[in-house]
């Protein structure tokens, strides 16, 4: 198992204790394409933050590739995030004053890769995503789909074990959403990247192979969706 969560609990304590995750048990194998679905407030974002080592959990155990992720120092956590996890965000979260290629280079910068090497690698990944011509452009000169593809390139450049996508299509129109999901599916199929997508859109979830439903801080149904028939609104479209 690549990812293993055992009875993970998380309580936020902002004046009033809020028990968000109430004992999550989840296993995800290497090469899977999983979506986590749930309504807002269900705890899906918190779960993603914990999987992405962006947040701590209170009790339970979380393993990546057999390594226990608990009580890490900030420096260690940063290092694990950098080497094991690639992030894709709803609002792209590109750095606005850096060009596409500079954004893609950034994770390697923090790994201490030399300037020419990381530039070369970043160009390779941009080319792979069909954005080589846009390398010198700033995020505000690009469309939403292009921005998300730059973000995907940035997430992939460290060759991570897991690709975490938080509402990756949330800021895109249906056509672009479709394209981005196709791209993720292709990456999963052809390169064997493990992808976890958090979403509340059934159409997006339908593109994935396995749908994990989360409700009130607990894992509900886990749906096998290799046939891509989960969406009640037909198979091949994302409804907006």
């Amino acid at each position: 198992m690549l990812i293993e969560l055992k009875d993970v609990n998380k309580t936020y304590d902002n004046g009033q204790p809020l028990h968000v995750l109430k004992g999550i048990n989840l296993s995800i194998d290497s090469g899977e394409f999983v979506s986590i679905m749930g309504a807002s407030g269900s705890g899906k974002s918190t779960l993603l933050n914990i999987i992405g080592i962006l947040d701590n959990y209170d009790t339970g155990e979380y393993y990546i590739d057999g390594r226990l992720i608990k009580g890490l120092s900030e420096k260690q956590a940063a290092d694990y995030r950098n080497r094991m996890i690639g992030f894709i965000f709803q609002s792209f979260n590109l750095i606005s004053f850096k060009t596409a290629v500079e954004n893609v280079e950034l994770p390697l910068f923090y790994q201490g890769v030399s300037r020419s090497k990381r530039h070369e690698l970043a160009m390779q990944y941009l080319e792979k995503l069909g954005l080589a011509d846009w390398a010198g452009h700033y995020p505000n000169e690009m469309s939403g789909g292009q921005k998300q593809r730059v973000a995907i390139a940035r997430a992939l450049i460290t060759n991570p074990k897991i690709l975490l996508a938080d509402e990756p299509t949330g800021a895109l129109d249906s056509k672009t959403s479709e394209e981005v999901m196709q791209l993720l599916a292709k990456l999963n199929r052809e390169e064997g990247v493990t992808i976890i997508v958090v979403t509340h859109e059934s159409g997006v979830a339908n593109c994935t192979d396995k749908i994990v439903h989360i409700k009130d801080g607990l894992i509900g149904r886990i749906e096998d969706n290799r046939e891509h028939r989960a969406s009640m609104f037909g198979a091949n479209t994302i409804m907006k």
């Binding site: 992405g52 962006l54 900030e74 420096k75 940063a78 290092d79 995030r81 950098n82 080497r83 992030f87 979260n93 590109l94 750095i95 606005s96 950034l106 994770p107 923090y110 790994q111 940035r154 460290t158």
Partner: peptide, 16 residues
Amino acid sequence: TTEIGIRRAIGATPSN
């Protein structure tokens, strides 16, 4: 804040 958060998410250590 956002920019620094992004940097932290993609692997910048606090000392960076």
